[in-house]
């Protein structure tokens, strides 16, 4: 298993010490990562989904499906899919949506696009803002640090989910009034802003802690005494040493944001239909629990698999990048 903390595995690794002594840290990490079968599987799944998301229009075109095309012929008079298992057929590989006959595979593919986009953007902005503020607070200390730390305490106090949901409609309206295009662009902008508001804190705390420790280290002292300015020290000397924990944390938060988008859409406060989203599909499918359970399981399982793949990948990364593992092996 991929757990960082498994002492026995560390023991195994130490046997290899002599053969890898001359490798760079990056190389060391990669070697460790490669041996983790679960992480490799996770990586495979994630790459697969990324591929699908990027080439969604092309893929659906090749298969000959569309996320919006209605197919009345695939439904019976009551709007339920013809045939067993939610209307799975040669034409619709994963069946059709009850009521409209839209192709579920096509909607899943476009939904993946949205989920991954949201996950990536959310992770990127929360990471970068959290990192910059953490570096500043950790390096400058004093009032700036106190202010930012208290601010992070305050943010942590808010019930983030309730607040996000509560402000979704008025927040979107306000953005629209400010000129963001109506509908999903405004809704997504809102969600990203709120995610940023609540999400930077985790990164901020970790980076701040690390920076506080690193700024006392010899190489920073050396740079300082040779006349380097704070900008240089923060971004050139300290920041490069933080990539390990940052990547580990970011790879944990990405799947969380993917699930978050689905969850908000499920509650009806995320993506606005008729745009395809996994959360909206799940919300709709609940109505057909009895009549068409396949419709519930397909998007649900897809979401589960993607989130799990991300977790496996992130644990593999954490293992591979963990400095403790480094020390143990190099020693």
């Amino acid at each position: 298993m991929t757990d960082v903390l498994s002492v026995d595995e560390r023991g195994d690794d130490s046997l290899l010490v002599t053969s890898i002594e001359s490798k760079s840290p990056k190389r060391l990490s990669w070697d460790r990562f490669k041996r983790d079968r679960f992480a490799i599987a996770g990586l495979g799944v994630v790459v697969f989904f990324l591929f699908i998301a990027i080439f969604a229009p092309l893929i659906t075109k090749i298969i000959g499906i569309s996320p919006n095309a209605l197919d009345r012929d695939s439904l019976n008079d009551y709007g339920l899919p013809n045939g067993r298992f939610g209307g799975i057929s040669g034409k619709h590989w994963l069946g059709v949506e009850p009521g409209t006959g839209r192709d579920i595979l096509a909607r899943l593919i476009y939904g993946a696009r949205l989920s991954l986009f949201v996950g990536l953007v959310a992770t990127l902005i929360t990471t970068s803002v959290g990192m910059v503020l953490g570096l500043i607070a950790g390096y400058l200390r004093g009032r700036v640090d106190t202010f930012l730390s208290r601010l992070s305490d305050l943010v942590m106090t808010f019930p983030s989910l309730i607040l996000t949901i509560a402000l979704v409609r008025p927040g979107t309206q306000r953005l629209e009034a400010m000129g963001v295009p109506e509908g999903n662009p405004a809704r997504l902008t809102y969600l990203m802003l709120v995610t940023l508001f609540f999400g930077w804190v985790g990164f901020f705390r970790i980076v701040r802690g690390q920076t506080l420790a690193l700024r006392e280290r010899e190489f920073v002292e050396a740079a300082r005494s040779s006349g380097a300015g704070p900008g240089h020290i923060i971004f050139r000397q300290i920041a490069p040493n933080l990539w390990g924990p940052i990547i580990a944390l970011a790879s944990m938060s990405l799947p969380a944001y993917v699930a978050y988008e689905a969850a908000l859409s499920f509650l009806g406060v995320g993506i606005i239909a008729p745009t395809a989203s996994w959360g909206i599909m799940l919300q709709d499918s609940v109505h057909f629990y009895r009549a068409d359970p396949t419709y519930f399981f397909i998007p649900g399982a897809t979401l589960f698999v993607l989130v799990m793949a991300f977790y496996l990948l992130s644990e593999g990364l954490r293992d591979a990048l963990d400095p403790k593992n480094d020390r143990q092996q190099v020693a």
Binding site: A69, L70, T100, P274, I280, D284
Partner: peptide, 30 residues
Amino acid sequence: GDTPTWAKLVAIWIESLKAAGIVLNSNPIE
């Protein structure tokens, strides 16, 4: 209405009007 049922019905509105060249924008209201 901003409800799950309408999320689907409006897709039928949009698609069927599109065939005649009419653009319809959904306006879900709580």
